[in-house]
Design a protein around this nucleic acid. Structure first.
Length: 183
DNA sequence: CATGGGATTGACT
DNA sequence: GTCAATCCCATGC
């Protein structure tokens, strides 16, 4: 099992190489970012509100929220209960159910099915209804069955305006499935 | 109650 | 490279 109750940066590294499954679709995590309530880029920075309740809840649950009014983004809640922190899943290598993914996303190159946080949720059929559900059912995150892949610390996180200097984006080195090339 | 911003994507120039 | 789409919710009056 994966221990989500550890420091969020450790969990972000640990998740690289693990497999996410939802129904018939599955993919290997190749890119993550860490968010912690102590820094202003994290939603939990504002404190405990209805929106951030899940982030402060027990680790190992899904935090799914709507971005730019359009996309659903998938996070894994980390750190002990009471600490607002989560790992954003930013990109996957498609493994199973690729035709289902293609059907959900439209005629799309395999390379573009899961190469972004909004893309992979659409490909796996993950929506806001899965917010605050345990990682295990219906979304599964399986521990690695192989040694940890080489990790590239890709520098700053993407698409944010605050705490841009934190090097909290992690990629599988050399993976062709990233949302953006590693730093 | 009104307002503004955001962890993005895809279409278009 | 630029830009619109679109909605939840925190904040402020």
């Amino acid at each position: 099992m994966i221990d989500y109750g550890r420091p969020v940066v450790e969990v972000a590294r640990e998740l690289l190489g693990c497999v996410v499954r939802h129904g018939e679709t599955a993919g290997r995590i190749v890119e993550t970012e860490a968010y912690h309530h102590s820094e202003p880029a994290c939603h939990a920075h504002v404190g405990l509100t209805p929106r951030t309740r899940v982030l402060f809840g027990p680790p190992g649950r899904a935090y799914v929220y709507r971005s730019y009014g359009i996309h659903a983004l998938l996070n894994a809640v980390a750190e002990p209960e009471g600490v607002g922190a989560a790992v954003l899943i930013r990109a996957l290598e498609p493994l199973e159910g690729i035709e289902t993914m293609r059907a959900r996303r439209g005629r799309t190159a395999t390379r573009d099915l899961c190469s972004g946080p909004g893309k992979l949720t659409e490909a796996l059929g993950i929506g806001l209804d899965l917010d605050d559900t345990p990682l295990g059912d219906p979304i599964e995150i399986l521990p690695r069955d192989a040694p940890a892949p080489p990790v590239a610390v890709a520098g700053g996180r993407i698409g944010i305006t605050k705490a841009v200097d934190l090097d909290w984006r992690f990629c599988v080195a050399g993976s062709p499935w990233l949302s953006r090339p590693a730093g």
